[in-house]
Design a protein around this nucleic acid. Structure first.
Lengths: 216, 216
DNA sequence: ATCGGAGTTTCGGTCCGCCTAAATTCTGGC
DNA sequence: GCCAGAATTTAGGCGGACCGAAACTCCGAT
């Protein structure tokens, strides 16, 4: 009835992550791609998660978390992001190196351990990529944001988060000193001016990974 | 061919642990008890480990690690003990609380992470219970030792290690300030005098968990 | 309005680690 | 030397997570 294996947690987390910054529901095939499994594996797990009341699913339709599922998912995300923050702040990792380690540890550490690092870090609200760390009750504070790739020329704002999907992008941006909190103005397509007046050319891949404040 | 699942690591580690302080080979049934699995499960895993050249086994006989198996086992033990040391030294755990957490983490952390904590701890030679931490090449430094339960009255020496099997024993001994490094003399059965002259009565369970230097 | 292809599900299968119950083998006491 | 009981192995099964191939459903383009 509880059903909280590492695999199930990964499915829930991935469903949650998909809807965190985009508002669309995820389809089984998209989920399969993200998880790197066959579509039939998704069907199977979806059946189990639905039977446990963690997701809502009509046959041939998209997937949506139930309240119970969302709570479970945010708990995993919370672990993942606290671990990433801790690896960067205390264990000497760079922000492009934490993902895989966190992926494993999030299923391995005890609650006690989690709270130990949380306290040590001073109860951070965001991870190194700017992603909000869900509270223990599942609450997530997420400001309105849009992709840099979708911003119009002239848009000014602050970098809120960078998707951690592509380590290459992360390394490049770190070298360019572009991270959460950076203020900028989009002076031309794929070109931003930072607070200190420096220009930066961002790759299309980077523009599709950088989320910025919606309001100037 | 490589075959290093968490379960297999646990079998190897347990076989190794059995022969670390006692010189006897372990039998399949003893291994089953230690691991909390059915004897038939042991038979099955033993077959796989033998096929992979990690243990030597003749049907109906006891189990022995091959060189390759010992190397694999000490690698796991190394992880386990470094993690325990780190949990106590840096993460605020008491020595009777680290076992379960280490049991899970030893299969989860990367080599990079392991070396990060190793460096942070200053490359310790022993864990909090006094167990030697194997070197990366599998070398283990283990002084001659005997159980306090087997020492004769009058025996004097130093506490080398305390088995971490029983948390109750560990808590009691911590309260009594008996730990690795403590000098003592066995003044009567189950009675020791510490370096500062204080007397301590040890329970039979504790006497069967405390290993001391063989020579006075 | 239908038809084909994309997306989804079903079906049968694999591997892993575990189980119980039923053989089988070994061994020590007579 | 034999034989009962203990230890071990074999046999058959289960649940979890995955797979590929085949069947099915759905929807948009014509």
């Amino acid at each position: 009835m509880t059903y909280t294996t590492g695999a199930a947690e990964d499915y829930l987390k991935t469903i949650y992550a998909h809807t965190e910054w985009q508002a669309e529901l995820i389809t089984p095939s998209a989920l399969a791609v993200r998880l790197g499994v066959a579509p039939s594996s998704v069907t199977e797990m979806v059946k189990k998660l639905a039977a446990n009341g963690l997701i809502a699913h009509v046959p041939y339709g998209p997937l949506a978390l139930t309240d119970a599922g969302r709570l479970r998912a945010t708990a995993v995300v919370r672990r993942h992001r606290l671990i990433e923050t801790w690896l960067v702040d205390e264990m000497g990792y760079d922000w492009d190196q934490v993902h895989d380690e966190a992926e494993v540890l999030e299923h391995a550490i005890s609650d006690r351990f989690l709270e130990a690092i949380n306290a040590r870090l001073g109860f951070p609200a965001h991870d190194p990529h700017g992603d909000p760390i869900p509270a223990a009750d599942g609450t997530v504070l997420r400001p309105p944001a849009l992709l840099l790739a979708e911003a119009v020329v002239g848009h000014a704002g602050t970098v809120l988060r960078i998707s951690d999907r592509d380590p290459t992008v992360l390394r490049k941006l770190a070298a360019d000193r572009i991270g959460p909190g950076a203020e900028f103005r989009l002076s031309a397509p794929l070109t931003i001016v930072l607070a200190d007046g420096q220009n930066r050319l961002v790759t299309p891949a980077a523009a599709a990974a950088i989320w910025v404040t919606a309001q100037a």
